[in-house]
């Protein structure tokens, strides 16, 4: 395995690790709002890392005389487009869900409730 492949594999597994953290987070947190923390942040970072890994791997041994290389570069740009979209969409979706929960009136978990 070359250095390049190892970097790609490391980025990919770091992304998968953060996805797993997000999934465990929405299982373990005590109330609704803190689950959103785990969901929103870890997902954005994990998608970025994993997608960048695949986009890098897709343009390996780039040769500017071949059409196939340029087509691979186009596919990588599309993957970067997904990352950009995720960065706009994830906070907006989180915001919408939080606002809905706020309107419905779900109570935030607080520390002093546990001490009673």
């Amino acid at each position: 395995m070359s250095i390049f492949s190892m970097i790609v594999a490391a980025l990919l597994f770091l992304g998968i690790f953060f996805f797993a953290i997000g999934a465990i987070g929405i299982l373990r947190f005590p109330d609704f709002y803190s689950r959103l923390h785990a969901a929103g942040k870890c997902d954005a970072l994990a998608s970025t890392l994993a997608l960048i890994a695949i986009a890098l791997f897709n343009v390996r041994d780039f040769d500017w005389t071949l059409f196939q290389s340029w087509d691979n570069l186009r596919v990588s740009l599309k993957i970067l487009l997904i990352i950009l979209f995720v960065y706009v969409a994830t906070p907006a979706a989180t915001h919408a869900i939080t606002k809905a929960a706020f309107i419905v009136g779900i109570e935030p978990w607080e520390k002093r409730k546990r001490n009673r």
Binding site: F18, I21, I24, G25, R28, F29, P30, D31, Y33, S34, H37, A38, K41, C42, P108, W109, E110, K111, R114
Partner: peptide
């Protein structure tokens, strides 16, 4: 978030507030 999620006594670390 990783530190908080993997901490065994998570409820003592977090202190949510508005």
């Amino acid at each position: 978030i990783t530190y908080i999620v993997l901490h065994p006594r998570m409820l003592e670390i977090i202190d949510p507030r508005l």
